[in-house]
Write a protein that binds this DNA or RNA. Structure first.
Lengths: 340, 340
DNA sequence: ACGTTCTGATGAAACGATTAACCATCCGTT
DNA sequence: AACGGATGGTTAATCGTTTCATCAGAACGT
């Protein structure tokens, strides 16, 4: 009765239903011409044996796969989590699922992840690429038929993505404008943009827009590339604050970096929102809990994920989707009565 | 030269190296007897063609798969993320990777996830089960050979897991003891344990230990099951505080629930750490940012993930691993001068 | 010169599903 | 009686790898 059978195969089901393997396959997938009585019998047999298709065999034959690969930069960043969730919801609706790997800001691992996912035969690939010309770029031409979507990166016509891949990300231009407008309305005359290390994140568009806007609005602009490590960022921010002649206003590229500014301020006995100002990107869950709350640029991250999946599952001409961003004012920007 | 070939297969490599498919396979996997010159030729051919094994075909033949399935409860909980990271690090070391699905606290989805992962032919399955007898239980006997590890749940000898599956989780007994000891040392005479909704999380062990310890130390004990939704928890906590005759001390089963207590307190104009006391579980990143910081029970979550992977990849007799927990005092517990 | 071992290589059978190409009835028409 | 068309079913090829069984020579000892 209960021999230690290794695995229930379609052959077993067919045998039990007294029918050929082909007919069993047709019956279960509702594809060929098969008598309704037979369908019933096969279904019952499958249920009784607790049969599960071996998706690998199926894929091998059909070449199709209901799985998408995702390469994110970091497993611990709630930002990516929400994106993943957005992707997952849509994937789930179409019966697919996600193969998630993280590059951990390491080009070696990013490259390995890409190889791996392609070997797994995913139906499409989403990636939050590292830097400007990581392995991503070299790797693309080798898989001419694989739909690829890059997210959280600036579309760069002459950059890594070329004609083939769609991009989805925040509307960086609008975001920077919002931030600067917010500062300007409160009497600020200069701003410092704090960016992730060169070549790690993919936020090249923001710098450009920052300079453009500052010029347009007559703000004095500074751009700083900073280390990724939290403590180092805090140190650097403290450095700048100490050296600053007047009021220092930071526009930082993530909430993570934003909290570092808080730490720096605390170390110097300065109060954020009075002595120092910060506008951040991302709106992580922690940001509302800070004191004062972190004024930040928010983007619907699940929506972003949804767009990524959409582009992956309905391939067409590549798009460059820029999602709207809005500013959440929590008071981390000071109001200056007179120019600093 | 560059015909739109669909995919580079081992046959192509073999052809280019002027050798049979078998020999090519042996050469690449270093398995059979093959001349070193041939190995070199095949390797070069593979590199030139940018060949990638089709893991599905390989798996179909070998029956083995370098992927493990994970079913977590929620994609957005940083707790699980750290666990995943722990798993991923070990998996990565052995060249395997993770198939992650989330049940979203829905038994239907948990069940679907299990089916799916087993159809994918994973080499093992880790699950943070929902409730006491979810689909998990019914599903187990059908796959007698699949290694399964449950995490973040109390091992329950007569419960869902039986003899087959290992469990990994916090040492709930020790955790509750720590919390109560902390309260007692500060003059508290009663405690309220706030638990997740019946049948959702898997923390049955804590309640038991809570009663035992309270009895032993002469504390008056109350246990509350609460809704999962944040706002509802806050409402309930406020209710209790208002009705309370003396000082209210909560031991809550997650930091998530803990912050709800903060909100309730704020709504009633009470100060946590003075008028109300809280000890939580998990130590999420947000907890240190609250004011006052949330006193919480911390567990090395990556270590937990590491253990899960270990048990999955080196199957043996089932173990019930309980990881040490320590208390992080951030001041959310008041010191009472005299008994309340 | 002849059997024996050893080396390097090959052919073909799996793995478990899908599916194109046939085949056998049976029913109704001409 | 012969034929055309449904209808329900079967056979066998195929997907890309791995691996078992086999084989042609070379090397070697007697």
């Amino acid at each position: 009765m209960s021999a230690p059978r290794q695995r229930v195969t379609l052959r077993d089901v067919a045998a039990r239903a007294g029918v050929s393997v082909a007919q069993a396959s047709f019956a279960l997938n509702g594809r060929g011409r098969v008598a309704s009585a037979t369908v019933e019998r096969v279904r019952r047999a499958a249920a009784e044996l607790d049969y599960q298709v071996d998706t690998r065999a199926r894929q091998l034959r059909t070449g199709q796969r209901a799985a998408y690969g995702v390469v994110i930069r970091n497993m611990r960043n709630p930002y990516f989590l929400d994106v993943l969730r957005g992707m997952e919801v849509r994937a789930h609706r179409q019966g697919a699922f996600l193969l998630i790997l993280s590059s951990d800001y390491d080009v070696e691992r990013e490259s390995a992840a890409l190889r791996r996912l392609s070997a797994e035969g995913v139906a499409g690939l989403a990636i939050a690429p590292i830097g400007r010309r990581g392995p991503f770029r070299d790797w693309l031409p080798g898989r001419p038929h694989l739909p690829v979507v890059a997210f959280n990166c600036t579309p760069d016509p002459e950059g890594p993505f070329g004609e083939r891949v769609s991009t989805v990300g925040p509307d960086d231009g609008a975001a920077i404008s919002l931030a600067l407008e917010h500062l300007r309305a409160r009497g600020h005359r200069d701003a410092t943009l704090v960016m992730a290390p060169e070549g790690l994140a993919a936020d090249w568009g923001r710098e450009e827009e920052f300079h453009r806007r500052c010029a347009e609005w007559g703000l004095s602009a500074t751009v700083v590339r900073c280390p990724l490590d939290h403590a180092d960022v805090a140190r650097m921010a403290a450095e700048r604050m100490r050296a600053a002649s007047g009021h220092e206003a930071f526009v930082v590229n993530s909430d993570h970096l934003g909290t570092a500014v808080y730490e720096a301020a605390r170390a110097l006995d300065l109060r954020v929102g009075r002595d120092v100002s910060v506008v951040a990107h991302d709106d992580l869950p922690t940001s509302a809990l800070l004191d004062p709350g972190l004024t930040t640029l928010r983007l619907d991250r699940e929506l972003l994920g949804d767009h990524v999946m959409r582009l992956l599952s309905e391939p067409g001409a590549p798009e460059a989707v820029r999602l709207p961003v809005h500013l959440i004012d929590r008071g981390s920007v000071a109001t200056l009565s007179r120019p600093s």
